[in-house]
Design a protein around this nucleic acid. Sequence first.
RNA 1: GGCCCGUUGGUGAAGUGGUUGAACACACAUGCCUUUCACGCAUGCAUUCAUGGGUUCAAAUCCCGUACGGGUCACCA
Length: 551
Amino acid sequence: MTNKELANLIFPNIDKTIEDYEAIYPEREKKEGARITRFAPSPTGFVHIGNVLQALTDYLLAKNSGGVFYLRNEDTDTKREVESAVLKIMEVLEYLGLTPDEYQYQGKVVGNYGPYVQSERKEIYHAFIKYLIEIDRAYPCFCSSETLDEMRKRQEAKKSQPGYYGAWAKCRDLTNEERAERIKNGEPFVIRFKSMGNPNRKVLFHDPVTGVIEFPENNNDMVIMKSGDLLPTYHFAHVVDDHLMHTTHVVRGQEWLPSVPLHIELFNAFGFKQPEYIHNSLLLKQDGDIRRKISKRKDPEALMAYYMEKGYPKKAVIESLMTILNSNYEEWRNEHPDASYLEFEFDPSKVGTTGALYDLDKLDNISKNIISKMDKNTIYDHVVDYTKKMDPSFYELITKYEDYTIGILNIEREQEKPRKDFACLEDVKKNIWYMYDELFIEPTYEWMKITEKEEIIRIVDTYMEKYFTEGDDKETWFSKVKEMAGQLGYAMNMKEYKQNPEAYLGNVADISTVLRVTFTSKNQTPDLYEILNLLGKERMLKRIKQMKEMI
RNA sequence: GGCCCGUUGGUGAAGUGGUUGAACACACAUGCCUUUCACGCAUGCAUUCAUGGGUUCAAAUCCCGUACGGGUCACCA
């Protein structure tokens, strides 16, 4: 029985040849040096921050070169697949602005190299496997998983290399007649690649992140098609898809490094040109004394959803990941504060090889800077979008008092050195809630130095009766507060007070604090003058009354 | 265990044989400014590049060993 006959027996309905597919998916028309990259996650329902790092790398590589960035859904593991996972992936990519040029999503296919969902490419894989069987580079294997487990144990006991190779590869030397018979008898089987490698020889390959790496050749007859659903394994799908879709650069995690020899052999078996590989380092997490891979089960910050829920601006997430990818990015950013990150010349060889800790403090800092630079309407829009999803009742409030809210958000904002109060949009409410009567219900007054009720009331009443005038400018306002301090026996300025603290009841800061706490309940707020301006006389009187009742 | 990769401060790191007395940013500390906080400003924070040995006039940078960390050895990706 010839190989061709065996191939036909296994795949009777596969008519297209690999040449047919070459014709269907011709070389892309692209300019010199353009890179074709892909983000190819498996739809497990979560988007890991490490995935985002890869997608960003892909995106940069493609966009920097006028190439194409596409999304491919690697759903060959039907056991792990999660409904709506693709939706989440698209959501994340949209959120970050890493929109793919080609994708398949909710029945819509964009791009000429689809389907972009692996489970819909079964026929294609089968044609390529059929070809491998015909040229004697693949064969059916009837070993059960129990047989394989046993084999592995024996290999361990003998301290020999685990795997399906050499004398261990029992099904490799079956005759085609035996194979045909067992298939006809309905025995389940997988298809294995027939390796011609010799581990005593080395394969060299270059990865821009790590440099030149030397591995022993692969000699394992890896499974390329699973039994049951007849879907290909990752290794095989990778070779076929990235070839037909004409990927030039494959970005993936470092955990793939050890399978490179296999992939090289696979590409060679077909005579395909292999893409360049960029193996990104993993994101780690400090856990006590140990650094471990950041895990979506233990670490909420491992998931992209965490950042979206907290309301980190997409730019902040991108910027922080850029600094991890290329640490010279920050320097560049300082020189080009307004440039798009896409103008930065990304250099894969500068990606660190050591797993990096993802630094949340750094993210906060970057994010604070970005938010502080937004103008009042921009931040208002962001807050509206965010609270609409995450905090509907607060959303109601801020949109009800739109101008008032914009005013609050604008305190100490549109100036040379704006405040940096918000690391994420979740922080906004924490910082401004007291401006709304609806939320100023049971304030906990954070008095500082002056805590006696009579003194507090004396200060507040004096202020309202003698020193408060609506419409004062800031200087006038503050000089009045100083004047009042003097009248009440407090030092009018800090220098005087420091020189002779005994001579005074306190100083003007203590007076300001009493006012601040009365009107906001908090002892730390942005500029009190601006706050009082926004609050207005009516609300101030109401809050004084409230304060007198509550303390 | 085999095979790969790595190890510069609390964090990300610059650095590829000699202007490095180890950049820059974050964090932290102190001080100044200041009506609080934040901002801003100033100063401090690795006598040393996991460790032992070697090559060299000269090493964080090259070589070898050791330790430690990570990855991988599936019909998962």
